[in-house]
Design a protein around this nucleic acid. Structure first.
Lengths: 207, 207
DNA sequence: TGTACATCAGTGAACGCGCGTTCACTGATGTAC
DNA sequence: TGTACATCAGTGAACGCGCGTTCACTGATGTAC
């Protein structure tokens, strides 16, 4: 058991990879079609398995939803910080860099990925309290990180003012992204305009 | 037929009222639980009927969804204009009046009602193209109306600049409302903060 | 105005279907001696 | 190191259930003469 768990056999390693494949498929499908719009049969088929194997990896669909939300938020948090680091390396304003990515057509089109706070926002009220708490924690953390960066950019900002701007800025980004996605298929021009106007508003308010 | 349709019998009048009750129940339930989260049995029971009667009024669940979305948008449009009229009567700034209502805890808590552009935003990509088109039209109309009001308030604004501000302002309001709703149950303080920061940002940017 | 027939909203049971979940079985993997 | 047994990921069929939809039936409403 001691050494056995250290260097696992092929099958267990493979099983862990398979779990990851199920989880990744779930994350994408849940964003794309909504949690209620995806069945386990479809999901397992996409991951390359038959339906029955699901319960070797997750206790229930709800457990999978929690895991998918959690993974999406972890990815989103990494992405946020990478975007800031990237901007610093290029000597750009970190928040402007973030906004340019966030309100880009590419991010809008990436329905399967992208910001989990936007992608899951509408599902959250239908999920468990634990999931709602996880989401609220992730959102608060995001606000805090943006406020931190704002103070870095302009040290004269008070903590309170930075927080206010961070919350409003992120709300604008989420709203623009969701409205832009809602009309993307039937009115691409309007969809692009929403992104562009969001961007120009962010720049006008010196954030 | 000529006179008969002029002064309809009690039953047909009643039937029309019943249709309205089904439609109203649907509008509320779809907002609350999402379109996929509501079954026709539950819906008809809420409206006070048995399941089978549904198809006397609507051709399918999809047809009901379209009707509910359409009714919600009509109501939303009326509400928008009434809010503007109300502000003018009281000598308030129309847009500020709108924002104070839109980003109020009362509006956040009114999940069954309130702004349809926010309430249905996440559902739209899963609906029919016709519904998506209707939504896009309603959104464009909303942007245009807000831009109009902005020019009324400040005639020096160019059409383009007014439009830009209207789109960004509405996107901020929608984003704040949705994020605020997402965390309302598990973190009321954060939920209120999101609304408050949205409001103060709107005022700071002189909209 | 009064009677005979047609209409049609509402009932309640049933339809096939896909859902989340369970289960007996398999065979390769991992463990014990 | 080699053999015997236990584990457990994956299969595929089945479970009960609720879904959207259909249908035969009812009785009050609306129409025709």
């Amino acid at each position: 058991l001691k050494e056995g768990s250290e260097e696992m056999g092929v099958s267990r390693k493979k099983a862990e990879q398979n779990r990851k494949r199920i989880l990744d498929s779930a994350e994408q499908l849940f964003r794309q079609k909504g949690v209620e719009g995806v069945g386990l049969a479809e999901l397992m088929k996409k991951a390359g398995f038959t339906q029955g194997g699901f319960y070797n990896h997750f206790a229930s669909k709800n457990a999978l939803v929690s895991a998918a939300l959690s993974q999406a938020m972890t990815k989103g948090w990494k992405q946020l910080n990478e975007t800031f680091d990237e901007a610093r390396e290029q000597g750009d304003s970190p928040v402007e860099h973030e906004v340019d990515w966030y309100l880009s057509p590419a991010h809008r089109n990436d329905v399967k990925g992208g910001c989990p706070m936007a992608g899951f926002a509408a599902e959250i009220p239908h999920l468990s309290k634990a999931d709602q708490r996880a989401y609220a924690g992730g959102l608060d953390q995001t606000f805090a990180r943006i406020a931190e960066i704002l103070i870095e950019q302009d040290p004269s900002l008070s903590r309170l003012e930075a927080r206010r701007r961070a919350v409003a800025a992120f709300s604008l980004m989420v709203g623009s992204l969701l409205l832009s996605r809602a009309v993307a298929v039937v009115d691409p021009a309007l969809s692009n305009e929403i992104l562009a106007d969001g961007r120009s508003s962010m720049k006008a308010t010196s954030v």
